[in-house]
Design a protein around this nucleic acid. Structure first.
Lengths: 249, 249
DNA sequence: CCTCTTTTATGTAAATTGTACACATTGATT
DNA sequence: AATCAATGTGTACAATTTACATAAAAGAGG
């Protein structure tokens, strides 16, 4: 294998010098602040809502902003987003997924800031939910205006993401109480997807998936025949998760 | 409306002071370098390939790395990714979509670097494609080893993303020459999805979508009956794009 | 307590879509 | 001319989706 050895030596010589000190390399790079922004969706009065706060920048006075924060020096992106959720809602273990990075060089009036947008879903009536800051408000997603930064765009992208996602994965249940009626579930889908669905076919669909557990209870305080309550069987779903397949576009 | 005025004044007083100078605010934020990494997929010899380069860090000597670069001070993220593609492949207008941000605090040995991963698809035999650097090589996606950084993870995520995406959108065509046979198309789907498909049903599926244009030509230099060549009708697809709907999980 | 109203709950027929499967045709090779 | 290796096509059956109407339960009001 003498020939191979010779080739290796040649290749080494042609190669540009390897960088020995990665730290000084990274120090040369231009650096920008990174934030996370959480698009926190809730569902109330048959409408999809998003939790917003008044912008604290004079530049955006009176405008609304997503809940976000700077990512700390040694903090993972997901951890930062979870921290924002915990600090703002008092809740842990909230559904959270990264959606997209936004990095337009002029999106922040104070200089370049790259943000990673997260979508999170929670039950707006959860007992643990504490909206501490009185600058925080739930807004109907379809009647937003006066958004700070590029936050309207971020919400739109998360909304689009959500529409697609709830059709493929059982996320929507995170927006409902643990026990819910099929009517509530359908209202939720109709509100997010902005369509109307046939009730019988909707029920048939969910029952045929066989992930709903009849908890043997009924709605209360409704001025008409109460509906049965169900729980979603997340355990069974995780076990039986099937690889979706089908070319369709 | 004197009462309202009074309320407004009160609200003002309760509110924390607005930030007047966003620039000095942003300057206080911890800043980290941002890079883009392109997972450049190609298709050759019935295998999905990814374009990699030898790492130029001694720390990762002999290991392979995605093609990436630092995002410049006033550069948009997408622009940075397109620049990487242009610089590395000599090609413009390559299919490119952002997939995910990776920001683990220890993913780079030189200090924290957040990267935005992009997936790009190109025809490995495109006449315009110039692999200038001899440290660049196409690797079979399913036989990777010795990856630098968290690039194996990034590739895995992009590969998963691609599998899902080609079933819902006509991306795969970006990996083929403009004119292709149905067999090539099927091989491509089979390679990416790692399944075998029934030829007749595959053809039926694509013909029923009615986006394939018969260009009236045939394969050449094949040692058997040549297949017809088709083009994908991107224009018609864009016009007729239907909103996909169906709850299924 | 009867009636009215509202909402839940349920089934079936028709249309569409997906799946499994076999044989004749073409062109190149010997 | 025979062989080989691939292309190209159709049909029956199963599964899924869609459209659609009526009975039963509970509360409200007289």
């Amino acid at each position: 294998m003498g020939k191979n050895d010779t080739n290796s030596v040649l290749e080494r010589e042609l190669k540009t010098q390897l960088i020995v000190d990665p730290t000084s390399l990274v120090e040369q790079y231009p650096a920008v602040p990174i934030t996370v922004d959480c698009v926190i969706f809730g569902f109330d009065e048959n409408e999809l809502k998003v939790l917003l706060i008044r912008s604290d920048l004079q530049f955006f006075e009176g405008k609304w902003s997503l809940l976000g924060d700077v990512v700390r020096a040694t903090e993972d992106l997901d951890d930062a987003a979870n921290r924002v959720l915990r600090q703002r809602t008092g809740m842990d273990d909230i559904f959270l997924e990264q959606v997209k990075a936004f990095g337009g060089p002029t999106r922040h009036p104070g200089g370049r800031v790259v943000t990673i947008a997260y979508c999170s879903l929670l039950n707006i009536h959860h007992h643990q939910l504490k909206i501490l800051d009185n600058e925080l408000h739930w807004h109907s997603v379809n009647q937003l205006c006066d958004m700070a930064f590029d936050h309207q765009l971020i919400i739109d992208e998360c909304n689009t993401w959500l529409k697609k996602r709830i059709q493929e994965h059982p996320l929507a249940f995170n927006l409902l109480p643990e026990k819910f009626s099929l009517r509530e579930l359908q209202n939720l889908y109709e509100a997010i997807l902005r369509v109307t669905l046939d009730r019988r076919n909707f029920r048939k669909k969910f029952f045929s998936m066989d992930f709903l557990i009849d908890v043997g209870e009924y709605e209360e305080d409704v001025p008409h025949r109460p509906g049965k309550l169900y729980k979603f069987n997340f355990g069974k779903y995780e076990e039986n998760k099937r690889v979706w397949f089908g070319i369709d576009f």
